[in-house]
């Protein structure tokens, strides 16, 4: 039998994970539903940052402090390993963002637009789109 208390403890124990997932799905929605390429990159960044939140939430220990040694013997530290993992992920994330934006700028130069459907139309219409649009 499900009691009120068990439901409440489930919600308070998983709130961070669920909010992380909600934000992740908002980012995913932007990335797959919007035709504008820059908006897609923003959506991808949103998704990425939300994944970081999920990971960092797992590393938290109640009553803990940042994993920098204080010298006191009875200090509780939060888990440093997710932090290390996510630091690497942030840096790799900015690399992919930079590359994606550079590609978008080149696409704009070649096609004159950064809307996905317009690019597809140009692709369909011409065999050598670069020659015609320029």
């Amino acid at each position: 039998m499900v009691t009120m208390d068990s439901v409440l403890s489930l919600i308070s124990g998983h709130y961070n994970y669920w909010m992380g997932i909600v934000l992740m799905m908002l980012g995913l929605y932007v990335a797959i539903s919007r035709g504008n390429l820059i908006k897609k990159v923003v959506g991808l960044n949103l998704f990425q940052t939300s994944v970081f939140m999920l990971y960092i939430s797992m590393g938290k220990v109640t009553g803990g402090t940042a994993p920098i040694l204080t010298g006191k013997p009875d200090t509780i530290y939060s888990n440093p390993l997710p932090h290390v993992l996510i630091l690497t992920a942030i840096v790799v994330g900015i690399s992919t963002t930079a590359l994606a934006l550079a590609l978008i700028v080149r696409i704009r130069e070649a096609y004159g637009t950064i809307e996905e459907d317009e690019i597809a139309a140009i692709e369909r219409q011409f065999e050598f789109p670069k020659d015609r649009v320029a």
């Binding site: 938290k60 220990v61 803990g64 932090h83 996510i86 942030i90 840096v91």
Partner: peptide, 10 residues
């Protein structure tokens, strides 16, 4: 969430 290094990098 105690992840200060991640916070300033972010």
């Amino acid at each position: 969430l105690d992840a200060v290094d991640v916070a300033f990098t972010e």
